[in-house]
Amino acid sequence: MRLVHRHGPSDDREEDRLAADVDVARSTLEQARGLMFRRSIPDDYALVFPFDDADTRWLHMLFVPFAIDAVWLVDEEVTATKRLAPFVGLGRGRADTIVELPAGAAEGVAVGDEVVLRE
């Protein structure tokens, strides 16, 4: 599985790989744990949180000792991005999917772009 970023005009979007090592947090327990208690994540890693519907979704960095980039999506379209600081970061956005990446990995991702999970 890989995660790609599609940007540019909708009829001629360019595609960049965001991550080749992707985990999907499907269960409530996996989603509640997120990246807590990990010491680090690889540069080419993403943790994806799929939800049944779009709603306001919060992220916190409690017990996460490294910065991350967070991306909120509705139907694969980016609705918000934010760099979250270790331990104290907090973010929210409307989403049916949230993606957590290493800090700097979502540098070129902007609201309105697409982020797509590929098998």
Rank of each mutant, 00 (worst) to 15 (best):
L35P: 01
L35C: 06
M36N: 02
F37V: 00
F37K: 06
R38L: 03
R38T: 02
R39N: 07
R39L: 04
S40V: 10
S40P: 07
I41E: 12
P42F: 00
P42C: 00
P42Y: 01
P42N: 07
D43P: 00
D44T: 02
Y45K: 04
Y45W: 09
A46L: 08
L47C: 11
V48R: 01
F49S: 02
F49L: 05
P50I: 04
P50E: 05
F51C: 05
F51E: 07
F51G: 08
F51Y: 15
F51A: 07
F51K: 10
D52K: 11
D53M: 15
D53I: 06
A54G: 11
T56P: 05
T56R: 12
R57Y: 02
W58S: 03
L59Q: 11
H60K: 05
M61W: 00
L62K: 13
L62G: 01
L62T: 11
V64E: 11
P65F: 10
P65L: 11
F66A: 03
F66D: 03
A67E: 15
A67T: 08
A67V: 11
A67L: 14
I68C: 00
I68Y: 03
I68F: 06
I68E: 02
D69Q: 10
D69L: 09
V71W: 05
W72Q: 12
L73T: 13
V74F: 04
E76K: 14
E76Q: 15
E77H: 15
E77V: 13
V78R: 12
V78E: 07
V78F: 15
T79I: 02
A80P: 04
A80R: 10
T81C: 13
K82S: 15
K82D: 15
R83M: 09
R83F: 03
A85H: 15
A85Y: 07
P86M: 01
P86I: 04
P86T: 06
F87H: 12
F87D: 05
V88D: 15
V88H: 13
G89A: 09
L90C: 06
L90K: 14
L90V: 10
G91F: 03
R92M: 01
G93F: 09
R94H: 13
D96M: 06
I98E: 01
L101M: 02
P102A: 11
A103P: 06
G104N: 04
A106F: 05
A106G: 03
